[in-house]
Design a protein around this nucleic acid. Sequence first.
DNA 1: TCGCAATGTGTGCACCGCTCACATTGCATG
DNA 2: CATGCAATGTGAGCGGTGCACACATTGCGA
Lengths: 190, 190
Amino acid sequence: MTDKRPFHHGDLRAALISAAATAIERDGIENLSLRGLAQDIGVARSAPYRHFPTKQDLLDAVAAASRQDCHAAYAAIPSDLPPRVRLKRAGQFYLDYVRAHPNMVELIFADHAAAPGQAASESPLLLFIDMVRDAMPGAEDGEIVRTAMTCWSALHGFSLLALSGRTARAGLVDDTDDAVLDTIFRMVPG
Amino acid sequence: MTDKRPFHHGDLRAALISAAATAIERDGIENLSLRGLAQDIGVARSAPYRHFPTKQDLLDAVAAASRQDCHAAYAAIPSDLPPRVRLKRAGQFYLDYVRAHPNMVELIFADHAAAPGQAASESPLLLFIDMVRDAMPGAEDGEIVRTAMTCWSALHGFSLLALSGRTARAGLVDDTDDAVLDTIFRMVPG
DNA sequence: TCGCAATGTGTGCACCGCTCACATTGCATG
DNA sequence: CATGCAATGTGAGCGGTGCACACATTGCGA
């Protein structure tokens, strides 16, 4: 410990995930290099392969960690607010998050391998299903799920299109998130 | 011409774009290699750089070509159909296209450079604006544009989420495109 | 006709992901 | 408490990549 560079790092796995997340947020996914990462941390360039057989495995781990953080933030929305208010809060959070962490969002949703996995409990879908169910009481389950799904889709799509500047084309520049969210949640009847 | 391999290829630029498009559809964007492309075509590995200073420039050109093809298909929807029918046709086309050409869609929307460019005339937004305008006569322009924007967003988001398997989680597996499109176009009042 | 710009060639550089034999360490077992 | 083995880190190396550069070949316009 007192040595400048002990042979064993201590927790190289966690350090790699953390450093990778930082680097990705700063430089984008495609600019991440395992060798550079190792050099930043101060280990040999082959050391990361002890913990992640493949670069993709590291990316998956970063995506999983980021997904958890994100989910925790969703879950912090008070559940005793009126359903439509909760929907708008969640929607605003989604837009804000994508704008604040575009590279992380790209990573999370590029992680095709984890998509059909059991991480379903962390999917935004479940959150939206709960809110939509409260907002349209008496509706049948299929209708609720489908509505939640399309709300999430609209939020997701709008965030991505806005990120790449594709919304600022036809005079939409001065549109507020608020108006967009109202339009989206028109899909929720009542 | 009669020679097996003439010194000048003839139209290497077009050949590169075409071969790149094929390779991307088959193997994905990140597996495209300029060297491999050159070898497939039968030129030296440095030849492509005469036409595209950078790999990204090739990708941009492929994206532009693909965008044009896609736009032509949209424009083929008969304009004398009732607006809601046209909306549904366009929506179904969008879903089909993304499912049929996932890698191309990824390329088109990863092309951040071209997004704010003057290619706006080929944006799906304009198509949707026309249809939505017909569907909600008398509405003010801002409202029309915003509604078209959110419809496109929902289609876009749903396609991407469906592609990565994120919609087949909460019993949505047996949902039909038709029901999803109906839900989305609830955003269009009337 | 002829000279020059456009196009294609061959080589080389730096970087990358990944592999492998080897060195070092800490922990569990005697 | 010793000690041997699995976990972890090291260093060199392989094949592949994007890109740069000097050179060869071609076709077109003056």
